[in-house]
């Protein structure tokens, strides 16, 4: 059930990328899509009545291996969040330079002004 909700969030972000005309809103939609995929990956590691996989004392080892949620997707998600962060920073920097050149964030007007200038 949670998988379907996360896929729905993915589809909302996808709709945003396709239909929005403002560059900042496209960037926010990409961020929504990345968050949805990361959430899907974390949910995939859930075990019923699981506890967090943190070892607090030596005696907990047996309890942790028997009952904790899967820590491997959490490691994957750390890497994926960092990748998403760097792509987001790059997109914001490029759109800022485009704003200084063309004076607008709207992609239709940017294309029109680009055709006029060349």
């Amino acid at each position: 059930m949670l998988y379907i909700l996360t896929s729905f969030l993915f589809l909302i972000g996808l709709f945003g990328i396709i239909t929005q005309r403002n560059l900042i809103k496209i960037i926010i939609s990409i961020s929504i899509v990345e968050n949805a995929v990361n959430m899907f990956l974390v949910i995939a590691g859930y075990r019923n009545n699981g506890i967090a996989p943190i070892l607090t004392s030596e005696a907990d080892k047996a309890v942790i291996t028997a009952q904790s949620v899967d820590p491997f997707p959490q490691a994957m998600v750390i890497t994926s969040i960092v990748i998403g962060l760097s792509v987001l920073a790059l997109m914001v920097a490029i759109s800022l330079r485009l704003y200084h050149t063309y004076g607008t964030y709207n992609i239709d007007e940017i294309i029109k002004k680009q055709k006029e200038r060349s």
Binding site: A89, V92, A93, L96, R97, H100
Partner: peptide, 11 residues
């Protein structure tokens, strides 16, 4: 550096 480039530097 990312925040510095986005907010402070101008051309």
């Amino acid at each position: 550096l990312i925040i510095l480039f986005i907010s402070v530097l101008r051309i």
